[in-house]
Design a protein around this nucleic acid. Structure first.
Lengths: 72, 72
DNA sequence: TCATTTGTTATCATATATGATAACCTGATT
DNA sequence: AATCAGGTTATCATATATGATAACAAATGA
């Protein structure tokens, strides 16, 4: 799997979990203390996310960190 | 959990898996195309690792990406 | 003793993630 | 039409991850 595919898979995981919880990007961004534009960038797979931000998001979404990284 | 604790947990995961496979930091670093000093930094939890490097390491170790991020 | 392996730390330059802002779009609501 | 919510994209400055190098230490083996 190349980098872009990896980033997109992770972004998709986050989006799926977020939507499953009925939260908006703005909701999650606020809980993470950053702007909604950054959430959009992450979900679109346009960044090589760090574990620090991934963890913040996992806490906001109420899931375990590894759920975000569940890719094949 | 604070950032430092998070980084250390991840570093410990990587180290445990690596040692379980009987590989040196040098072995894994070579498979990832970077230097052993960088592996040491990652395992020591002295960096906020990106998913790109975490994925490279997971491939080198022959485990799923999420295993590296299995933290409480 | 000497060389090798393994791991650690400090330091540096460079690449890039981050956080913020603004502009924009779509769809829904008033 | 006008407003709002939700999401996207581009751009910027700043912080920091990365990759490399070098020096070091401890353990091991020749």
């Amino acid at each position: 799997m190349n980098d872009v595919q990896l980033f997109i898979r992770i972004g998709d995981n986050i989006r799926t979990i977020r939507e499953g919880k009925g939260l908006s990007q703005q909701d999650v961004a606020a809980m993470c203390n950053f702007e909604k534009s950054n959430m959009s960038r992450i979900e679109a797979g346009r960044t090589n996310i760090t574990v620090k931000n991934a963890y913040k998001i996992s806490v906001a979404l109420g899931v375990k960190l590894y759920e975000i990284f569940d890719v094949e």
